[in-house]
Design a protein around this nucleic acid. Structure first.
Lengths: 143, 143
DNA sequence: CTTTTTGCAAAGCTTTTGCACCACA
DNA sequence: TGTGGTGCAAAAGCTTTGCAAAAAG
């Protein structure tokens, strides 16, 4: 069940017994109104429409938690810095360059293959969206 | 060139132009005197022998940096919480259970296979020691 | 009217940094 | 006597929490 629009996300929240308030709706809108599927909590704060009073950081963090519980977002720590939250409608793994910090996404098909490989070897249920691999991106490697 | 003993680590530090002080030696000893190959900075602080005055956190962090630069240790963030530093003489990837926090290691052979797969698909040079994958361990999955 | 949610401020946790002191060549 | 290492304390960055005021049902 993919969640790809604001309305679907709101519906999903309700299905999880979460009351939908203006602040929460604003957070959801900020996330789905952008092409980015990688946002930090603070980026969400700054993106909330200026039409309403900007929600407090605490509220945004709490809402992101609710969205994660509802399966709309997945929080991922890319090593250093703040967690990024990414939408679950776009499965991918993350390659992080230890030199320049660039984040490259691995497409779903490769992630599938990878997941199969891992689950074959380890008694572990992989969360495909939470694969983080560090290394050097092509540009930094060539320097 | 694997670094597997205190002396090799000390030698490696010297080769990188780092002067070896009692405090630094104590940190190296604390790391190599234990069966663990996963230590946080604070665990290192607490493990330093009680025979000498315990080095300050800052000193330990600075020394861990030096050891990382020298290729003796690799810092890895397992999502939440402090970074772990693991010895480079024991290549492995990390599976982290999002429910109980357990860390399962993926052995070198599987990591190799994984690395090949990834480097085939992405123009990226993988750091095999810095693969972190979240999911559910067998125990938490069965509950 | 009761239960949540929100904003604010404070605290938490990990790590970094500035600076004075100290050790050692 | 100068170079760099160390400890201490403070700060920085991200996130969580306690609590009183506000909003929702």
């Amino acid at each position: 069940v993919l969640v790809t629009t604001i309305d679907e996300a709101i519906t999903r929240l309700r299905a999880h017994g979460v009351t939908v308030t203006p602040a929460r709706r604003a957070v959801v809108a900020a996330i789905f109104d952008t092409g980015e599927h990688h946002l930090t909590a603070l980026e969400v704060v700054h993106r909330v429409e200026r039409t309403r009073r900007r929600p407090d950081r605490a509220t945004v963090y709490r809402t992101l938690d609710l969205l994660a519980d509802a399966g709309v977002l997945r929080p991922v720590h890319l090593g250093t810095g703040p967690a990024i939250y990414h939408r679950t409608d776009h499965t991918h793994a993350h390659l992080v360059c230890t030199s320049c910090g660039a984040v490259v996404e691995i497409p779903a098909e490769a992630v599938d293959e990878l997941t199969r490989l891992l689950e074959r070897d380890a008694r572990f249920t992989i969360e495909p969206d939470q694969i983080v691999i560090s290394g050097l991106c092509a540009m930094c490697h060539d320097v």
